[in-house]
């Protein structure tokens, strides 16, 4: 489904990773592991086509340019570790995203219902600035899941959550096509069928 070939990313003249190749099948869940500084987050940002990079990424044999960049990002959704502090509430943000041209035809799940499953429906109408780290993380993820992306790119999606909330989220996401960046080796075992060790693609770290 997703084919990555020779992916490289440079930041300020420093090569973070080079020659990263892998493929991801529908329904498969992949983990990316490496210590801090190897560019795990950057891999996800490249796949979401948010930053310049070298190499090719294809979804069902189509490049981001062929799919159309906004459409590509609708299908391959990147969830940052810390959701940005948008103005207004998660409900306001959901309404805004609903208006994006590429979301018009999509049959969404109800984000509020997912938020309820994850016990953050009570903050759905509260401003982002008043949400705790864990609440914001779950609210943002609930919205991302509701838009029915084909692939979820998750950057430490449960880093601010306790054990019980983490289990709720892992259960809900089970069976989806995903790439996880996580430090938690136990979580890797639970959620991923395969792991990529990014240290093998680094240059500066030897």
């Amino acid at each position: 489904m997703l084919e990555v070939e020779n992916l490289s990313r440079e930041v300020g003249g420093r090569v973070l990773f080079r020659g990263l190749s892998f493929s991801l099948n529908r329904g498969e869940s992949l983990a990316i592991a490496a210590p801090s500084g190897y560019g795990k987050t950057q891999v996800l940002r490249c796949l979401a086509h948010l930053v310049p990079h070298e190499g090719t990424v294809k979804l069902d044999d189509q490049s981001p340019q062929e799919v159309g960049i906004p459409q590509w990002r609708r299908k391959v959704v990147y969830c940052p570790q810390t959701p940005p502090l948008f103005r207004g509430s998660p409900a306001d943000f959901a309404e805004q995203v609903r208006m994006f041209a590429v979301q018009a035809e999509v049959d969404w799940e109800d984000p509020r219902a997912i938020a309820a499953e994850w016990q953050v429906d009570k903050v759905w109408e509260k401003p982002w600035t008043t949400l705790s780290g864990g609440e914001a993380q779950r609210a943002a993820l609930a919205l991302a899941v509701a838009t029915r992306p084909e692939i979820l790119l998750l950057d430490e999606p449960t880093s601010a959550l306790d054990h019980a909330s983490r289990t709720l989220i892992e259960d809900k996401l089970y069976g989806r096509t995903m790439i996880w960046v996580t430090h938690d080796s136990e979580q890797v075992g639970r959620v991923a069928s395969r792991t990529i060790d990014l240290t093998e693609y680094g240059e500066t770290h030897g």
């Binding site: 979401a48 948010l50 906004p70 459409q71 990002r73 609708r74 959704v77 990147y78 969830c79 940052p80 959701p83 940005p84 948008f86 805004q96 995203v97 994006f100 041209a101 590429v102 979301q103 943002a140 919205l143 991302a144 838009t147």
Partner: peptide, 8 residues
């Protein structure tokens, strides 16, 4: 980028 990531 949060908006871009959702298809904006």
């Amino acid at each position: 980028e949060g908006r871009l990531a959702l298809g904006a």
